[in-house]
Design a protein around this nucleic acid. Sequence first.
DNA 1: GTGAAAGCGCTAACAT
DNA 2: ATGTTAGCGCTTTCAC
Lengths: 338, 338
Amino acid sequence: MTETAKRRPGTRIEEVARVAGVSKSTVSRVINDEQYVSAKSREAVHAAIAQLGYSPNQAARALAGNRANAIALVVSEPTGRVLGDPFFAGVLRGVHSELAGRHMQLLLMMTQPSDTDDLVTYLSSGHVDGALLVSQHGEDPLVPMLAEIGLPVVSGGRPLGMAVPFVDADNFTGALEAARYLASLGRKRIATVAGPKDMAVGADRLSGFKRGLSEAKLPTGLVAHSDFTPESGAKAMERLLRKAPDLDAVFVAADIMALGALQVLHAHGKRVPEDVAVVGFDDSVFAATATPPLTTIRQDVEELGRTMTWRLLAELAGEAGLPPSLLLPTSLVRRASA
Amino acid sequence: MTETAKRRPGTRIEEVARVAGVSKSTVSRVINDEQYVSAKSREAVHAAIAQLGYSPNQAARALAGNRANAIALVVSEPTGRVLGDPFFAGVLRGVHSELAGRHMQLLLMMTQPSDTDDLVTYLSSGHVDGALLVSQHGEDPLVPMLAEIGLPVVSGGRPLGMAVPFVDADNFTGALEAARYLASLGRKRIATVAGPKDMAVGADRLSGFKRGLSEAKLPTGLVAHSDFTPESGAKAMERLLRKAPDLDAVFVAADIMALGALQVLHAHGKRVPEDVAVVGFDDSVFAATATPPLTTIRQDVEELGRTMTWRLLAELAGEAGLPPSLLLPTSLVRRASA
DNA sequence: GTGAAAGCGCTAACAT
DNA sequence: ATGTTAGCGCTTTCAC
């Protein structure tokens, strides 16, 4: 590295102390919202901070306080395919809004299974105070590894393996509602493009769907698995059509897969919803803009991000009696496809 | 704050030095890839680091080195609507891949126009070494403010106001190619759903489009402005159809707007591409999954992210003779819509 | 309620 | 090529 650029931060805490007429310690106490500071001092410090445009040096805070004042958002998936997913975008937005105003930075980390070790080393070295995990496939080794090093963690989506705190949409109930709705429409040959078997989200939505069909005394055998891409959604739809050319409804376990399914349905001359009713899941940006607009199960991904963050921060703050896991409600959004 | 959780980082540099049989300074030099370290020491240090699973404390590095070892990715737009945009996801992926392996963290910051001052204060306080800006509308006040405090900055997309280093897709040439292609198809009444007037990306694509039509001696008057959402794309398409019911082609300046335009075209009984040929821009995930699949101008957003990051890091490293701005090539991707 | 002083773990002169 | 020393700006005992 050559001649790395350096810059001197502006005001230091000492100057704030001078202007406010108190000691550094008092300024520090005010900044950290501690008790035992007189209203008078507090006010003076706030005034000085505003006047000088002071902003504490995070590095020094972290070093002295033995905290990082940062949490990581870990996306463990090959080359961040999830990033393109509106799901992730929503979570990110939620995390960010929950963090707003707190003195906490968000570090974004992506990781392939191959460099899991590096990541664990990094996370265990005090760079962050806790981690949020998203979109891990099945039994992600990251989960037990982080649990072992004692790093507070909250998973977005139910992890398949080890029990760690998590927040998830109520996928089971959402899919159940989708199946009930399709059955209520009088559809009899209801299929599903399910998610991957090795992801809890896939399994949960499939379970809920099957439960709904069972209630209506309908057969539950029309299942094609897929991963969360339009392409594989299309392929799954092809398989379904081959197996049951006369199917009259399909629950696609993610809007993004429904896009592919819709293309295949059109290509086969099936009218939606007349011949085949389609219900998606997520109510992502894809749903409203699909042709035809997609009836879907809405999950509030932004709320998911907020809740995950709240849960993690609460744990970092040492709060007791926190629920190990939380399920967020879903709701049916009716559009043109069913 | 109550009883904030604390953790002690594991190994410290001193222990690495002891195990390697050298001084802290030498370990530091090895870590920072400096010269004047014997191969022997270097090797010993690497071995010790591996053995101990050592990872340097970023806070201490930042404090002592007077660098943050972090850059910010600033998304300046009301409540991160951009986040849902595949454009942003791609850029993020590119930024991240370029950062991989360097000791640099990525801080994600979103900001509304209202808290620009806070952001500037924060960024100017040494928390980051530089910033990447994306998706600013028109003359974003952030640009001159950051330039003023001397923070190295690279903009993703050409900023409308002040001259700061930027990287952008070659929007002009891309749109030019779209227009030429449509003309080469024999289309005569070619319209465009353009982007916002106050964004360079909107202006540049419109200019290129008009230039292309002029070349073919075609009229350039069929223009409807829109922002980058499917809804406003649909509205713009409605306006275009009202103005020219017999239009036979439309260049939609973003795939995501094309989704809305496509819905409207269908609703009006227009067949795509038979009656109306449609060309989009971006080649985002929306393009291939649209009905019909969209012919579009591809821009490599991941490369955009990588290039922005490279440019910023090069500047931080004090490299001389860096190009103030860079334009990335685009290419036509033929699918079914035109 | 407030201040003084001792580090937090590292980098950066300055020696050698 | 390597070791020694002095901080970086803040939080945190511990007095008062």
